[in-house]
């Protein structure tokens, strides 16, 4: 039972983050809060990838003296780290695009509330 807990608690924290992000996207009415929920959801996915790359007894994927690279168990899997490294910066840039769209919506309709916005569009 303790083994099951120690092997899975990182996944549970990831799922909590995903649920918080989904709550922000579905329940909240303000579009800025929806965008923040989207960002939290993305952080959950990134944390899941990084936690999957972990190996017991291994070190970070930088070649160190005394740890031969021929022994794979010495180093963590470097591929998820690389993918998430680019995903974080691209996430920041696309968040900028989302906020630019929100600024334009506010300048045109004068509100960021979802229901008022639907009324004004019709």
């Amino acid at each position: 039972m303790l083994d099951f807990f120690m092997g899975h608690y990182a996944y549970w924290f990831t799922i909590i983050l995903l649920a918080i992000g989904l709550y922000g996207m579905l329940i909240k009415k303000n579009l800025v809060k929806k965008t923040i929920g989207l960002s939290i959801f993305q952080a959950g996915v990134i944390l899941f990838f990084v936690s999957v790359a972990m190996k017991d007894g291994a070190t970070v994927p930088v070649k160190a003296d005394g740890l031969p690279v021929s022994e794979v168990a010495n180093y963590m899997n470097a591929l998820p780290h690389t993918l998430m490294l680019t995903a974080i910066v691209v996430g920041v840039a696309t968040l900028g695009v989302a906020f630019a769209l929100l600024i334009n919506i506010y300048n045109r309709y004068g509100t960021l509330n979802e229901e008022e916005l639907l009324d004004k569009i019709q």
């Binding site: 910066v89 920041v92 840039a93 900028g96 906020f99 630019a100 600024i103």
Partner: peptide
Amino acid sequence: TVMTVLTLIYDNM
């Protein structure tokens, strides 16, 4: 590219 794009986003906002 990353430096100038982040500065560009802030400047335009």
